[in-house]
Design a binder for these strands. Sequence first.
DNA 1: AATGAATGAGCCTTCATTCAT
DNA 2: AATGAATGAAGGCTCATTCAT
Lengths: 197, 197, 197, 197
Amino acid sequence: MRADARRNRERIVAGALDLFAARGPAVSMEDIAHAAGVAVGTLYRHFPHRNALVAQIAEGALTDLLAVTREVAAGDGTGWQHLDDIARHCAGLPLALVKTLMRELPGTEALERLNAESDASLTAIAARGQRDGSIRADLTPAEVLELFSMATCRAGAKAGDSVSTVILDGLRGAGTTPATRATRATRAASASDEPRR
Amino acid sequence: MRADARRNRERIVAGALDLFAARGPAVSMEDIAHAAGVAVGTLYRHFPHRNALVAQIAEGALTDLLAVTREVAAGDGTGWQHLDDIARHCAGLPLALVKTLMRELPGTEALERLNAESDASLTAIAARGQRDGSIRADLTPAEVLELFSMATCRAGAKAGDSVSTVILDGLRGAGTTPATRATRATRAASASDEPRR
Amino acid sequence: MRADARRNRERIVAGALDLFAARGPAVSMEDIAHAAGVAVGTLYRHFPHRNALVAQIAEGALTDLLAVTREVAAGDGTGWQHLDDIARHCAGLPLALVKTLMRELPGTEALERLNAESDASLTAIAARGQRDGSIRADLTPAEVLELFSMATCRAGAKAGDSVSTVILDGLRGAGTTPATRATRATRAASASDEPRR
Amino acid sequence: MRADARRNRERIVAGALDLFAARGPAVSMEDIAHAAGVAVGTLYRHFPHRNALVAQIAEGALTDLLAVTREVAAGDGTGWQHLDDIARHCAGLPLALVKTLMRELPGTEALERLNAESDASLTAIAARGQRDGSIRADLTPAEVLELFSMATCRAGAKAGDSVSTVILDGLRGAGTTPATRATRATRAASASDEPRR
DNA sequence: AATGAATGAGCCTTCATTCAT
DNA sequence: AATGAATGAAGGCTCATTCAT
């Protein structure tokens, strides 16, 4: 019985994610429930109100992002390489959607915490990159993160696509450049297109 | 009373723009009307339905964008310089908001036309920039436009801010001056209405 | 100036009549005004509210009906012949429409009076017809009037059409009948199709 | 709860019928809901929009009419007697109201079909009556139906009331018994549920 | 625990009526 | 006197949420 409930909960979250992606943030609870194969009552048993569901979706994506960030940050490489790695792993995460959803979401405590932790980890990486010379020094860490977020939280982002490439290239430190494009192509071949879930 | 009506219409559009920016695309017509100091009936006299108002806002911004684009394109300079100029002039336009609003707007004919014309003008500039070597050649014109749009249609974009600078720098052709940042700083000081922070 | 106003008033009433006939009782004041070539303000100058306009239309038709009734009643013939004559003269009046309009009209004093006078005149005729044997005696005068009204206040009523003929035939007194249909055809040929306005 | 929902649905339809009859076709959905003892939402759960409710009411009455027509048509008797029987059985149906409601109702497919079938059945009866001499031959079947409809679809129609009697008498064929009224009175006494006043 | 019916606040829109020009 | 802009009360409809089964 617990297994059933868990499966329902997962199908609700997954279905809601798909619906939001397909039809925008105004999907009705009724539609979300039916897409998950349950009735509204069941939906409300799992999530006491709409925002709880939306927050759950957001938390899922941000948790994944945080895990990726920490895992990458624990490895070797320059700050820029870490950002690049993270960006590749994030391509499968619905970060663009989550960003949109969160615009109209009164911040949960859990979300605030996740955001803070993500920011802290990424800021640390950015600062390190600026120290090791791999990331432009004429930007604040916050500006680095904004650009990183633009590359990452885009509607149709794919791992290593041109748009991300250009932005990440733009973040490189002054002395690092010329081989950029060739390098990138090489690296991309070995990195996975589908980041972990 | 023609003057009064016009003033009302303008206050409605301006107020709606502000509200959308502040509270997202789901603001009610009632709120928009009251923000403009009129009753709903007046709002509906000027715009027969919600979408007509949204479309008007979008058309306004796109018309401005098109005007800027054409004006700049008629002047001297490389393709990259044109994009840079246009980006600076667009800083005050609510393009980010408009982009969001248009996601849920069944395209008007006028909007389609404006979009097509903007795209055409900007694509021409991008292609020219790639021919004259000022813009990276390893991108499709569409990718150039997407990056340009990301730099331009951002929530808090200011003329010459760091984010735009990095993206536009990223668009530069391979052989162009490495003095990018200094050059930019110089140009920005004389051309932008918003000095760099 | 007085002539202008009068013409406006007449055009409003005539236009409203047409619109009601064409599009039902839910036409808007705005549409009525524009159909008459004036603005709403002018419409309201002539009729302080919608019901005043509707009442005016109803009064017009009822006044015509009353005039016809009295004129016919002053002439020779049996009661049945009078009813028949009146029915023919009424064919051009918008009595069906007026009946519909009056369903949702809180009765004016003028309308009550007109109704009462019409009823009185017609009841007198019905009673006389029953006395002179030309109208069935096994009906109350009110029943006679109801049937007469059904024949007369029909949507597409024409002078002497089959439906009216059958109903009026049905009203005839017991001893009068057989030649009915032939007689009717003859009489119809001499009666006008377009009653007075 | 299926039972509860069904009861609600029935109360809505019945209440709406009453309200329409009492206050005309412009009753608000709010009023209809409250008359049925439910909230608007419930009304809209059962009928997705106003017209669906109106159509349901119309369908109900037309279905009843069709059933009566077919049942009577399957029995013995002249065409005229069939019309007379049908008229008696229809006295309780809200056909007058339905006729009014349908004036402003964009025809549903179901309604079109019901109308077509009713018309076909009744036209067949009328034609048969004209062949067997019981119905006037100098009318088109459509005219017969219009008169029949006038007798039947009247606001306060009762089985065998004077108005219906006169109209149906008017439909009789030339050679039929002059004893009409006596006959009718006799038949009425045994067949109608509503005795003559 | 699941279902789906019921609730009612709130949204978009219309329109009779008023009022400034 | 005419115009047409402004008002605001409804009305139709949706949807998050609650609740009886």
